[in-house]
């Protein structure tokens, strides 16, 4: 079985290499191996595996990462649509446990 992969060319993750200080936090917190550190700079090596959890952005002290973070949950999108708010996951732990 291959690794499970979601849709291609859709994620909003951006890395500003000029700002990167090479602290490696992004590579540490990413659960999907999206980043690698080469020559003391971060690089996106597997962008399509990004799930937009926002961990890298929150933990980047140099503010070099931006991503439209959110939960990839259809139910949350439906809830947000019905209530006219943003995506709202009120899964209370049913989702990712």
């Amino acid at each position: 079985m291959g690794r499970l992969q979601y849709l291609k060319n859709v994620v909003t993750l951006k890395l500003d290499v000029a700002k990167c200080t090479g602290c490696q936090r992004c590579a540490e917190v990413c659960p999907h191996g999206v980043f690698a550190i080469e020559n003391k700079k971060a690089r996106l090596i597997d962008l399509d595996s990004c799930m937009e959890c926002g961990a890298c952005q929150n933990n980047c002290p140099a503010d070099a990462i931006s991503v439209g973070a959110g939960v990839g949950c259809a139910q949350a999108v439906i809830n947000g649509f019905l209530r006219r708010t943003g995506p709202d996951c009120d899964c209370s732990g049913t989702c990712c446990d």
Partner: peptide, 20 residues
């Protein structure tokens, strides 16, 4: 099965929006 995206560990919000 579309609603199982929320339980999965690898789907992004942008992706879910696109498929929906």
């Amino acid at each position: 099965v579309m609603n199982f995206t929320g339980a999965s560990t690898y789907t992004s919000l942008s992706g879910v929006r696109r498929e929906m």
